[in-house]
Amino acid sequence: MSETLSTPVLIIGSGPAGYTAAVYASRAMLKPILVQGIQPGGQLTITTEVENWPGDVTVQGPDLMVRMEAHARDVGTQIETDMITALDLSQRPFRATGDSGTVYEADSVILATGAQARWMGLPSEETFKGFGVSACATCDGFFYRGQEVVVIGGGNTAVEEALFLTNFASKVTLVHRRDSLRAEKILQDRLFKNPKVSILWDHAVEEVTGTSDPLGVEGLRVRHVTTGEITEIPCKGVFVAIGHAPASELVKDQVETHLGGYVVTRPGSTATSVPGVFAAGDIADPVYRQAITSAGMGCMAALDAERFLAENDG
């Protein structure tokens, strides 16, 4: 027989946004329940060294998330190792169903399910993830000082990442499968004018190459989309920038979304189009996508939820 758990605040997701929301909601005596999801700790659990988290010169991503989880537990958050498979936002209390069969009833919901980088789907890419293959230049670019790197993609994200990497790398090669970029014109102008940047048009990635002991990227094998000619590009880092996919499947038909699935929030707020439902972190942020901004939004969401509950259940 399935169990039913009730809470004033249900937090779905366990990255920086979810755990920060949990800390603030717990301190407000709202007795939140946090459901961790399929990847407890979120994207930081697949990041090695984090050097842009204030207060830590360097910290391992998984270690940081362990500390956040411990903090949330310490202040009283009930943390469930479960994954929400269905969510009904049609009426309050809202009703979520976990993969375990547990039903969660909540007076308010904070969506903190994050977003995942889109990958190329190559076995070699999977092999070198975290060892030369990255989807975040602002996270990992610092490690490629004076080295050659490659960026894959042709949109705003790819161009922004390529430009950012010129601060560190000796050379940045942008590989794009078409003969023109989708990025904004102003970004393209900056890219074309940068002497560190080389663009390889009409090429698709075939394979990431490297060493197994120690594990590390040494190059990239690309194929011309018309002629089929193979080119080898020496590099130490490969940055995949072909977009992010917000994890909004649970709510895509229930709350307003835009830009390919990101949840719309009211300006200056984390409130969604459904009263009592709030969104924090990468699920609602197509621009910054940083751990620190996600944590800030988690704080905002908890405060917004506290205010909503006081006004509606007072």
Results as ranks from 00 to 15, higher is better:
248 S>V: 07
213 D>E: 13
47 T>R: 04
123 P>W: 00
220 L>C: 12
192 F>G: 00
25 A>E: 07
60 Q>M: 14
122 L>E: 06
231 T>V: 12
71 H>R: 08
29 M>N: 15
116 Q>C: 09
106 A>D: 09
91 Q>E: 14
229 E>F: 01
20 T>E: 14
57 V>H: 10
118 R>N: 15
255 V>E: 09
302 A>D: 08
302 A>W: 10
235 C>I: 06
127 T>M: 12
217 V>N: 04
255 V>C: 09
205 V>T: 13
294 S>Q: 01
104 Y>Q: 04
142 F>Y: 15
64 L>R: 01
50 V>S: 00
269 S>N: 05
123 P>V: 01
120 M>G: 04
156 N>V: 02
66 V>E: 14
89 L>P: 05
56 D>P: 00
201 W>E: 08
62 P>E: 11
312 N>F: 01
274 V>L: 10
141 G>Y: 02
109 V>D: 05
82 D>N: 10
185 K>N: 11
254 Q>L: 05
105 E>H: 13
189 D>K: 15
36 Q>R: 15
127 T>R: 15
204 A>K: 13
24 Y>A: 08
189 D>P: 00
201 W>I: 07
18 G>L: 09
240 V>G: 01
219 G>M: 05
121 G>T: 05
111 L>S: 05
292 I>C: 01
119 W>S: 11
256 E>I: 10
176 H>Y: 12
232 E>F: 09
182 R>I: 03
192 F>A: 11
207 E>G: 00
243 G>A: 09
60 Q>P: 00
211 T>V: 12
214 P>Q: 08
4 T>M: 07
312 N>V: 09
9 V>I: 15
30 L>Y: 08
257 T>K: 02
165 L>N: 06
106 A>S: 12
233 I>L: 15
109 V>R: 01
115 A>N: 07
255 V>D: 03
208 V>M: 06
23 V>C: 09
199 I>Q: 03
47 T>N: 08
250 L>G: 03
312 N>I: 00
29 M>E: 15
79 I>P: 03
295 A>V: 02
26 S>K: 00
92 R>Q: 14
203 H>A: 10
180 S>M: 11
53 W>T: 02
32 P>V: 07
279 A>D: 11
207 E>K: 15
188 Q>D: 02
174 L>P: 11
84 I>K: 08
64 L>A: 11
119 W>V: 13
117 A>Y: 12
86 A>E: 15
195 P>N: 10
27 R>Y: 04
295 A>W: 01
206 E>L: 13
188 Q>F: 01
230 I>L: 15
284 A>S: 15
128 F>W: 10
119 W>N: 11
91 Q>N: 06
95 R>N: 13
158 A>L: 09
268 G>C: 11
151 V>K: 07
11 I>N: 09
232 E>R: 12
216 G>S: 15
252 K>G: 00
149 V>Q: 06
102 T>F: 01
214 P>V: 03
241 A>I: 02
58 T>E: 15
85 T>M: 12
158 A>S: 10
153 G>F: 04
229 E>G: 00
184 E>H: 13
146 G>Y: 08
90 S>Q: 12
247 A>G: 00
13 G>I: 02
208 V>E: 01
16 P>C: 04
290 Q>G: 02
26 S>M: 04
251 V>W: 05
58 T>D: 09
223 R>N: 07
276 G>R: 03
6 S>G: 07
246 P>V: 07
252 K>L: 12
109 V>H: 03
3 E>Q: 14
